[in-house]
Nucleic acid binder design. Structure first.
Lengths: 239, 239
DNA sequence: ACAAAAGTGTTTCCGTTACACCCATGA
DNA sequence: TCATGGGTGTAACGGAAACACTTTTGT
C-alpha cells in the first residue's frame, strides 16, 4: 500500500462468474445474452458491478449468482479465479473484474427463477466456438484449465455431483471435464481408497440400470493425495 | 457484466506485491515500513494505488516493484496471486488490492536505489511473527503456499537462482522454501533428467568449495512432469 | 593426505496401468 | 435367460525412496 494518497482513479469494479456444471453428458457453462451495447446479443458471463462501496466481493459473487440463476448455494462450490483488468477490456470505461469459478451439480430446476434475463446453460465447447463479450473467452479458458487441474489434486469433482452419487457418476464427471476415458476398475479403486473422498451411504440405486450401485456422499477431504492425474497428452502452460 | 449501469461505487484499486527471494539460507520477503496511519510503523507489502484510470494492473505491479526496490526485471518472475477486498480491510475507505507474487534471485544490490522508503528483506518467519499492516499476514501466507506448491509442479525454483547455478544451489532453494531436507542423489537425478528444466553450460564453479560443480541455466520448460512432491506431513487446505 | 562438496549405481517399495471375469438387477 | 451396468483380483511396469562409494578440487 503506497504512502501517497492523491487522486483515486475512477475504476469500476465488477464481479463475473464462470459457473460450470455437467448436463447431458457435456461440460456446460452458464451464460447470459447481452441486451445492450457493447457486445449486444453476444453471450457473456453472468456478473455485475459492486452494488455499493461496502459490498464484499465474494458476497457480490453470491448475489449475482442468485440474481442471474435463482440458485441458492445447495452444494455450491465457489472460489476466486483471477482478476482481469486490461485497460481496454471494456470500451465504455475502465473496469476491472474479479472473476469467480463456481461448480454446481446438474440442477432439476434448469435455471428458472430470479430476474434471470436469459441465463442459460451452454456447452463449453459451443461457447468457445462462438462470439463472446469482452475477454470472456479468455476467462472461460482459464476457468476450464483451473477446473481440469483441480480435479487432479482436489475432491472438486464431487461438486458436480448431487448429494448422493455413484462411483460411475463421479467417473463420468472426470471423463467429461477432462475429455478422456478412464479405466473403471482403477478409478474405482482409487477413489474408494482415497481417505476422506467418499462416504458410502449404504443405500443403492438402480437409476442407471443394470446392477444396483452403491451410493456415496462427499467426504471431508478437499485435497486428494496422491493425485489422480490425467494422461499428459495435453500439457499446456499455466504458470 | 450486468446490464444495469447505475452509480459506480467509489472503490480504490491497489496493487500489492509479495516479493520473495532466498538470502542467507532463508526465505525472505520484501517489506516496507509504513510511515503514516493506519498501521504507522508496521511492516507492509510494497504496493500502491493505480496511477491513472488507464494503467494496466500488471504494469502497475512492475512499476511499484521498480519504485520500491529499484529493480529492473532481471530474471524476474511475476504472477497474479489473488485479489483481496474485504470491505473493512482498510479503515480509511474501501480498497480492493490485486496482489502479485514475485520471485527474484538473491541480489548483489540489496534493495538500494529508487525512492524506496525503507524497503528491506525480512525472513518470512520473522515477518509472520510480527505485526503486519492490513491483511498482509494472510496475503503472505497465501503467497507462501502458492510458492511451495508451484515448486512441486513447475520450474519456478529456478527464479530464485541467478542466471547460472548448480544443482546443489537449486536443491537448497527447495529445501529452504519447503523447510525440509531432500536426498541429494534423488534430487540430482530428478532435475537433471527432467526434460527442459536445466541446461548445462559446460562451465564449472568452485564457489561452494570442494569438487567443482557443473553450472546450469534455466531450460525452456515451465511445467514439471512428473512433479517433484514434498513429503506430505503438512497437508493443508488451499481449495 | 585430508577435508569438503559433487557426482554416480542399485535395490526396495509403492502406486498406476492394463488386463478379464463374476454379480445383481429389470425386462 | 439375457442385456445392462457394477464390482473385484492380479501381474507387469515405472517412478521415488533409501542406501554408500568414488571423484575432484583446495589446503
Amino acid at each position: 500500500m503506497s504512502e501517497e494518497e492523491w487522486t483515486i482513479p475512477d475504476v469500476a469494479v465488477a464481479v463475473d462468474l464462470a459457473v460450470l456444471t455437467v448436463r447431458a453428458e457435456q461440460l456446460q457453462i452458464l451464460l447470459v445474452e447481452r441486451g445492450i451495447e457493447p457486445f449486444r446479443g453476444a453471450l457473456a458471463l453472468p456478473g455485475g458491478f459492486l452494488e455499493s462501496a461496502l459490498e464484499d466481493i465474494e458476497k457480490a459473487a453470491f448475489r449475482e449468482l442468485a440474481e442471474e440463476t435463482g440458485l441458492a448455494p445447495e452444494g455450491l462450490y465457489l472460489e476466486q479465479l483471477k482478476t482481469y483488468g486490461t485497460p481496454d477490456r471494456d470500451p465504455r470505461r475502465r473496469v476491472i473484474t474479479v472473476c469467480y469459478l463456481a461448480v454446481l451439480p446438474n440442477l432439476p430446476t434448469p435455471v428458472a427463477g430470479g430476474d434471470a434475463d436469459v441465463a442459460r446453460w451452454v456447452p463449453v465447447e459451443t461457447a468457445l466456438a462462438g462470439q463472446l463479450a469482452f475477454d470472456h473467452a479468455q476467462i472461460i479458458c482459464d476457468a476450464l484449465e483451473r477446473t481440469r487441474s483441480k480435479l487432479e489434486y482436489t475432491t472438486l469433482a464431487t461438486a458436480f455431483c448431487p448429494a448422493e452419487f455413484t462411483v460411475t457418476e463421479l467417473r463420468r464427471v472426470y471423463e467429461i471435464v477432462w475429455g478422456e476415458q478412464l479405466e473403471p476398475r482403477n478409478f474405482h479403486r482409487k477413489v474408494t481408497g482415497a481417505e476422506g473422498f467418499l462416504v458410502p451411504t449404504g443405500e443403492k440405486t438402480i437409476r442407471n440400470g443394470g446392477r444396483p450401485a452403491l451410493l456415496h456422499r462427499r467426504g471431508h477431504a478437499s485435497l486428494l493425495h496422491p493425485a489422480l492425474l490425467r494422461s499428459r497428452g495435453s500439457l499446456e502452460v499455466t504458470a
